[in-house]
Amino acid sequence: MPDMPTPPDVTVEILSGLTARQKTLPAKLFYDEAGCALFERITRLPEYYVTRAENALLARHAGEIAEKAPIGAALVEYGAADESKAVSLLDAGTRAFTAYAPVDIAPGALAAIVARMRISHPAIPVLPLVADFLQPLSLPASFSDKAAFGFFPGSTIGNFRPEAVHRFLGHVRDTLSGQAAPMLVVGTDLRKDESVLVPAYDDAEGVTAQFNLNILSHVNAIAGADFDLAGFRHRALWNAHEGRMEMHLESLSAQTVTVSGTRIAFRRGETIHTEDSYKHTREGFLALAQGAGWRSGGFWTDPDGLFGMHLLLG
């Protein structure tokens, strides 16, 4: 496979977040090798309905979604932790995809995708892109003669605040514009009762807590930090006003942590806000997309109405 460039240095971003009034860490740092493995465990938990609902949606509607793509298009998947959802589209319908470009910040996950795809789909060229897909990016030159069909499954777009949704969707329009008008299928977790939402982010087995705490291990590794994971605890809460689940890491005592030579003080009870997960209504998300220059080309949901996928047309 082609050499994979190292993702851009995020130390400045880490320090900016940890020195803000409300301390934060970028959610993309969840997904080192250990974080990816923990998230895979989360997707199989009884409380975590999202993956089951999305799989049910794809089982029922993958053919319809794939039929919307231009014939011979390249499938460009944003945030490709594995290829299973893309394969649902690659194998569906009669409009054959002729290339696959998984985009993610984790080189290890992309290398594993390439290895598996060589066996399962040897006829489909796969060119992974190691990139922070929140930033502008360019498709490989070998895709220049193909229409690009964007795919952003899961509920990752729920991690973005409205202004970040606008920026991301603008970048995607620029990336996918080429041989045909840009098209993007994006997954959204739909609004539902707090009694369903909170357990999905605070499971009885504690896997989500491990996942949240692991972000500190990742920061230790990439930013020369000395976080003691035992000094923090996982918190999950529903913010009804903002329409989002929030994950935080709460400091259990007054303590000082060093990050890349910078000393950062924590008060007891102070939190690092690690993730937002917005729960969108169909109409609310479409309004966001329209504000970024997209229009609706279709919408699908699972049988229980828990999860939705929008087809956006640029």
Rank of each mutant, 00 (worst) to 15 (best):
F152R: 06
M4G: 01
A81P: 00
E54W: 03
A62V: 02
C36K: 04
A223L: 03
M1L: 05
L286I: 11
P26D: 15
G243S: 08
A106H: 12
A27P: 13
A34S: 10
A289C: 02
P303D: 07
F30R: 11
S177A: 14
A148T: 04
M247Y: 06
G291R: 15
D203T: 08
A101D: 02
A111I: 01
G224N: 10
G93W: 13
T6W: 01
G35T: 12
D226H: 06
I124E: 03
H280G: 01
L176W: 04
R267W: 03
A96M: 05
E194Q: 14
R21F: 07
E64H: 13
A115E: 15
G158N: 11
I264P: 02
G154Q: 07
S155M: 02
M4R: 11
S277C: 09
F211M: 09
K279Q: 07
A80T: 15
V186C: 10
G154R: 08
A181Q: 15
Y48N: 09
A101L: 11
R282F: 02
V196W: 09
Y31L: 06
T175A: 15
S84E: 13
V114L: 01
A180P: 01
V50I: 12
V12P: 00
S144F: 02
P2H: 15
K28M: 07
P122M: 13
D174T: 14
R44S: 15
L190V: 03
H61S: 12
L249D: 07
L110Y: 04
D304N: 12
N220M: 05
I124S: 06
L288D: 15
F151S: 08
M1Q: 13
P2A: 14
T19E: 11
T262H: 13
P182F: 10
Q135W: 02
A81S: 13
I119A: 14
F168K: 02
E67L: 01
G178L: 08
L197P: 06
Q255Y: 05
I119L: 10
R173D: 08
R21I: 05
F168W: 05
V165I: 15
Q290P: 00
F152E: 11
A131I: 02
T258P: 00
D104C: 03
A254D: 12
R235H: 08
A62H: 10
S144T: 15
T156G: 03
Q22H: 07
Y49G: 03
D302A: 03
L75C: 08
